[in-house]
Design a protein around this nucleic acid. Structure first.
Length: 490
RNA sequence: GCGGGUGUAGCUCAAUGGUAGAGCGCCAGCCUUCCAAGCUGGUUGUGAGGGUUCGAUUCCCUUCACCCGCUCCA
């Protein structure tokens, strides 16, 4: 069933390595499961993805007018917080408890179970009994199952100095909510954005870069008044879906899946995933690119009061055996005072959380095409072409002399330098036949090639060749930079 | 974590218990006035570690990575 789709993924992975998009981490030492490196083209592609996100969400956002679909104008600001945070952050966020469960494995049935739950989990072999109660069960001793990466702070540090690499960038935003409010004059509603690495000891890294142990997130925490949060949730849900389609993901391959009511966290009034039909999945299956979650006031309250727990639909501070909070919050006031309405409240949060590596992988998969183009005798030959949206293409333009003499290389180099100086990622190639050079650029997704020929000296123009249509037009050299910039703006 | 498969040049593949070949690619040059296959020359390898052996890419063990299925994915 998945035959051709699997073959497709193999080709994409091979191209990524061959052309320097993605390499296995530490490959010369045999690789390291769950980690990947980006090569010279991959880093450009991923930077473009990040840059597109940051521009669209932050730097080009207009805080003076409401964007289409938004209930009202709003501000967007950025932060860059550290990867290692105060350990208490993860205790209050709930990650600590979830990430340090003891697990037992059954050597007989190969099952893996949470040690504190085995008395209530039916044995897979004999469901009438619970795990460990069937006489064939062969359980290991409870073992630590650390889903967060642990590290030690300080050269002489001991276990008491243990800290964790963040499993999400979101908490760096929440703990800086007050700092941002106090330092920037933002008013609710507003969003704080962050791009950065996160780390999770995933059980099974799989499917190329899709599930990695070190990965990069692009997260927004959008703070709004509680009674307006449903509208903002709907806005961000649609806005984020449209972001992918505008960068070239076909809607055939993308879907917005609303979580069913029983999937939702108790405090959430909505979560939706943007999902992509990756080639490594069976037909009809999708993998998550981004989750847009309505998180209520859960996070700010957790960092005020301490770790929260759901009791009969109410969020209450979880207490320990001594009746005190199990994990104390900061005790700082993270509420917001609206001086228009003279009301104080804890903002609700809409969280669009995107995976930068997953997005990059989706753009790679979406771009991969095999089609046919004529050779110099007019015979159709197969061609591999990466149809990146120009905004994310690693290289925007390639400049060639048609032949390597008659002053053409000098003219081509001048055009190349002009593009460089204009900040356009471009490349120069005088090697081999012109057709071969076009194909090389096709395979790395360069949208436009500019060729200097014998006529250039007479008419001062070059041929601009389009990657997708193969069409060629003449463009005056004087207008080349402006033409590429115009096309990049779309 | 379990089970199955795979691992030879940058890529696709070949071969062998006795110095590893080809095509493509890449590089240098020639040729060339717009879509990869013209000419000359050059370039590179048995995933890692150990064992058996006079000698291992080949046989054995271990390990690592990748793929498939399960498990997991807070």
């Amino acid at each position: 069933m998945a035959g051709t789709r699997e073959g497709l993924m193999d080709k994409i992975v091979a191209l990524c390595k061959r052309r320097g998009f993605v390499f296995q981490c530490s490959e010369i030492y045999g690789g390291l499961n769950g980690f990947w490196d980006y090569g010279p083209l991959g880093v450009e592609l991923k930077r473009n993805v990040r840059e597109a996100w940051w521009q669209d969400m932050v730097s080009r956002h207009d805080p003076l007018d409401a964007p289409a679909g938004a209930p009202q104008p709003y501000q967007m600001v950025g932060v860059e917080t550290s990867i290692i945070m105060h350990p208490q952050v993860w205790k209050c966020s709930g990650h600590y408890d979830l990430f340090v469960d003891k697990m037992v494995d059954c050597k007989e049935c190969k099952g893996r179970f949470r040690a504190d739950h085995i008395s209530s989990i039916p044995c897979p072999v004999k469901p009438s009994k619970m795990v460990g109660q069937h006489d064939k069960c062969s359980l290991t001793a409870p073992r630590d199952f650390n889903l967060m990466f642990k590290t030690i702070i300080g050269a002489l540090g001991t276990e008491e100095d243990a800290a964790f690499l963040r499993p999400e960038t979101a908490q760096g935003i929440f703990v800086n909510f007050k700092n941002v409010c106090d330092s920037t004059r933002v008013k609710v509603p507003f969003g704080i954005c962050q791009i950065g690495k996160s780390f999770r000891n995933e059980i099974t890294p799989r499917n190329f870069t899709f599930r990695s142990r070190e990965f990069e997130q692009m997260e927004i925490e959008f703070f709004c008044p509680p009674d307006e949060s449903p509208q903002w949730y709907a806005y961000w849900r649609d806005r984020r879906f449209a972001w992918y389609t505008r960068l070239g993901i076909k809607t055939d391959n993308l879907r917005l899946r609303d979580h069913a009511a029983d999937e939702l966290s108790h405090y959430s009034c909505g979560t939706a995933d943007v999902e992509y039909a990756f080639p490594f999945l069976d037909g009809g299956e999708y993998g998550e690119l981004e989750g847009i979650a309505h998180r209520g006031d859960f996070d700010l309250r957790s960092h005020m009061e301490g770790k929260l727990k759901n009791e009969n639909g109410q969020l209450l501070v979880e207490t320990g055996p001594d009746g005190l909070p199990k994990w104390r919050g900061s005790g700082k006031d993270l509420t917001y005072f609206d001086d228009q309405t003279r009301q104080r409240y804890t903002p609700h949060v809409i969280e669009p959380s995107a995976g930068a590596d997953r997005g990059t992988l989706a753009f790679l998969c979406e771009a991969y095409h095999e089609d046919e183009a004529p050779d110099d005798k007019g015979q159709l030959q197969s061609r591999v072409v990466m149809r990146f949206h120009p905004r994310i293409a690693p290289i925007k333009a390639a400049v060639f002399p048609l032949i390597k003499k008659d002053g053409q290389p000098e003219q081509a180099k001048a055009v190349y330098r002009e593009l460089r100086e204009a900040g356009i990622a471009c490349t120069y190639d005088e090697q081999a036949a012109i057709g071969k050079r076009y194909r090389r650029q096709d395979e790395i997704g360069t949208p436009w090639c500019l060729t200097i020929d014998g006529e250039t000296s007479n008419d001062g123009a070059v041929t601009l060749r389009d990657r997708d249509s193969l069409q060629q037009i003449r463009v005056p050299i004087k207008e080349v930079v402006a033409e590429i910039q115009r096309r990049l703006r779309g």
